[in-house]
Nucleic acid binder design. Structure first.
Length: 695
DNA sequence: TCAATCCGTATC
DNA sequence: ATACGGATTGAC
């Protein structure tokens, strides 16, 4: 092998590179010499190949510097993958902060932030998107077509993708700072008396808000208006929604307000080519706005002025790949670092959002009570199933008579009826048989659950069995598991109205919309379609299946699902929840007051030491490996260990610290992981900060 | 005393 | 991963 004689370039001859290896102890930049022929092209933010431990690996240039402080001799960059700058300084800083918060590696975060390169897309001239069809290879055609059976969802994305791609050319002329911006409309936000929020965005300020939307709100229009205000001030925006249906709606709302060519829709579902094309439109500064699913949360937009997230309680916002960052946290970190505004919106409010309000980090935007009165549906509690059994009208369909009445009334009006039925498969938790207060562990306040049907309940956090349990709220000593039979009820309901079409929307086949006529629509939570003109009635069946889930967020999540469904009712329509009104979550629904519920919920979590009032991390792996990691970890003072709890053939430990020690905890865990990877410990431990499934 | 082997460590 | 250095061990 003839050694190529290379010379370092004159100006800034050292490149600091993040190498793409997933080892915790190598999570720092490595210095390489920039050969003279790459002096101009190997810019910070480009992808490179470097020799690392005698292997060729991918990497990203973080910066170019005059000299290295490395003692040994430097290797040369092996190759510049492309001169495309895919990592902006803003995103680089964000990625480092996210890695630190989640006890992860920068390389892991960069792999989430930067989509895989697609060379052909990179080479495309700016407006050749339409003409590229003839050069498309079979693989790309395959990747780009929607999955078989994806139905309307696939078609919607297809539309979003071509709109995005086709708009690049137009954006070239329109995106300059002198371009005439459309005036933004304040009316929708004035209903919340929040016109000032939009004005601040337009004026270049960084207002931060937690927004609780009123029922039947056209939320995509509101977010689009906030984005338009930001754009009118010459800045960019990133907005994240949970799924493809929401993205499609937001995409359409933006096109209506901004026109085409000012934004792209970005989601992993686009496939590699379209995804990279949308990413490049943003990173090349062709569009000021990126909307998408969580794949878009790191999207580079020039001059970021606003980050927005809709329905931050949806667990799809949680990234399933290491280091498992949550879109809300990424976007808020981003707003903080970039000095951008933030909008955390939803019909409901998470504990995390409530914390933003209570710490003063964000202001709340809530509908005034009098406005709410004119827009809200009429929410009615229908008593619990004990009451239902005594109700003769309910006998036919095992349905509370109020629900029956509401459905009949709506159908007579030729309006559709939505029936929400919880999905099966939740981990059954146990509750007091008398007052139904969820049973909590006397030791650590974790939820009690049954591993098998006739076992003694045990704590999901610390593993202790609760032999002699006494309900703290009523003194009851009997426990019962949650049961569900609502699916059948819904089917029977359909049969009870002969001649009325029954449609279902759920795991296999999600409907985006239904027409306005009389119909019964049975849907699982999250799969509710929109109805033309709104539903005449919304029936929330089997609320106990949601409320008694073995999950820390059970009530918050139940309320979220109810409000998301209830929001689809037309103003004045009827919403029936099949339980009595004593439960706080039901009260919050009746009054359409998610803020009140979130404040209550957060206060309770503070008292019990739950997130987000405390910071938790879970360590999952073979028992020896978990113990090994903990032995190596220099945990911050006051760290509390809970567990172990068996998870399959592995086990899980929880570490809990107060919020002020969160950064120290993440650092300690990352460091300990580094000690183990340096030692080449064979058995991996999964470290999750703020794990989603905290039950 | 030397060489083969094991172990731990750094990887620009 | 993989190679390197230093330590360790075994045979002459």
């Amino acid at each position: 092998m003839a050694a190529k004689t290379r010379e370092p370039c004159d100006h800034l001859p050292v490149a600091r590179v993040c190498v793409d290896v997933p080892l915790a102890h190598l999570d720092r930049p490595f210095d390489y010499l920039v050969p003279a022929d790459l002096a101009e092209t190997a810019q910070p933010g480009t992808r490179v190949r470097v020799r690392f431990a005698r292997q060729l690996v991918d990497g990203w240039i973080l910066e170019r510097v005059e000299a290295s402080d490395h003692d040994g001799k430097l290797a040369y960059l092996e190759r510049l993958v492309s001169s495309e700058v895919v990592l902006t300084p803003e995103v680089a800083r964000l990625a480092r902060a996210v890695a630190d918060r989640y006890a992860g590696n920068l390389a892991d975060v960069l792999r989430l932030a930067i989509p895989p390169r697609h060379a052909r897309v990179e080479g495309e001239p700016a407006q050749a998107a339409e003409a590229k069809t003839e050069t498309e290879t079979e693989t790309e055609t395959e990747q780009d077509s929607p999955a078989p059976g994806a139905g309307s969802e696939g078609a919607a994305l297809e539309g979003a993708g071509s709109r995005a791609a086709g708009s690049e050319g137009a954006a070239l002329e329109g995106a300059g700072p002198e371009a005439v911006m459309p005036a933004f409309d304040l009316a929708g936000w004035e209903a919340y008396r929040a016109g000032g929020y939009l004005k601040a965005l337009a004026g270049g300020a960084a207002p931060r808000a937690v927004w609780s939307a009123m029922p039947f709100e056209d939320w995509p229009a509101r977010i689009a208006e906030a984005i338009a205000a930001t754009v009118s001030g010459g800045r960019g925006a990133v907005a994240v929604v949970a799924d493809a249906r929401d993205l499609d709606r937001l995409d359409a709302a933006l096109t209506a307000i901004l026109g085409s060519g000012r934004h792209v829709a970005l989601s992993a579902a686009l496939g590699p080519a379209k995804r990279y094309r949308a990413f490049l439109a943003a990173s090349r500064g062709k569009v000021p706005v990126v909307v998408g699913t969580r794949a878009a949360m790191f999207a580079p937009v020039p001059e970021l002025g606003l980050v927005a997230i809709w329905d931050d309680g949806d667990d799809l916002h949680s990234e399933p790949r290491a280091p498992y960052p949550h879109a809300r946290e990424v976007l808020l970190t981003r707003a903080q670092l970039a000095g951008a505004g933030a909008l955390v919106g939803g019909y409901t409010r998470t504990g995390e959002a409530q914390l933003l309000v209570e710490t003063g980090w964000a202001k709340q935007i809530v509908p005034p009570r009098e406005t709410l009165r004119t827009r809200a549906p009429q929410v009615v509690p229908a008593g619990d199933d004990a009451q239902m059994a005594r109700d003769p009208a309910a006998a036919t369909a095992r349905l509370p008579s109020v629900a029956w009445e509401a459905a009949r009334h709506a159908l007579k009006d030729d309006a559709p009826v939505l029936v929400q039925v919880p999905r099966r498969g939740y981990v059954p938790s146990v509750a007091c048989a008398d007052c139904r207060t969820p049973a909590r562990c006397p030791h650590c306040s974790g939820p009690l659950a049954l591993r098998s049907s006739n076992a003694t309940p045990a704590c999901h956090w610390c593993g202790r069995v609760a032999a002699a349990y006494t309900c703290p709220s009523c003194g009851g000593r009997r426990l019962r598991a949650a049961v569900t039979g609502a699916r059948r009820t819904a089917e029977e309901l359909g049969r009870a109205f002969p001649g009325v079409p029954v449609r279902t929307s759920g795991r296999e086949g999600v409907l985006a919309t239904v027409p306005g006529g009389a119909a019964v629509v049975v849907a699982t939570p999250g799969a509710e379609p929109m109805a033309d003109g709104g539903f005449g009635a919304v029936l929330l069946l089997d609320p106990w299946a949601l409320l008694t889930r073995a999950d820390l967020r059970a009530t918050e999540e139940a309320l979220r699902r109810w409000m998301n469904a209830a929001a689809l009712a037309r103003p004045g329509g009827r919403v029936v929840v099949a339980t009595d009104g004593a439960v706080p979550a039901v009260q919050a629904l009746l009054r359409w007051d998610a803020a009140w519920h979130a404040a209550r919920e957060l206060a309770e979590r503070r008292e019990l030491g739950f997130p987000p009032a405390a910071r938790m991390a879970s360590l999952t792996g073979p028992p020896e490996a978990v113990a090994d990691l903990l032995a190596a970890a220099r945990l911050p003072e006051g760290a509390e260990l809970l567990g172990p709890v068996p998870v399959g053939d592995e086990e899980r430990m929880l570490v809990r610290v107060r919020r002020g020690r969160a950064a120290a905890l993440a650092q300690a865990l990352h460091e300990a992981a580094g000690v183990r990877t340096a030692r080449k410990a064979a058995q991996p431990v999964r470290i999750q900060v703020d794990p989603l499934d905290l039950f």
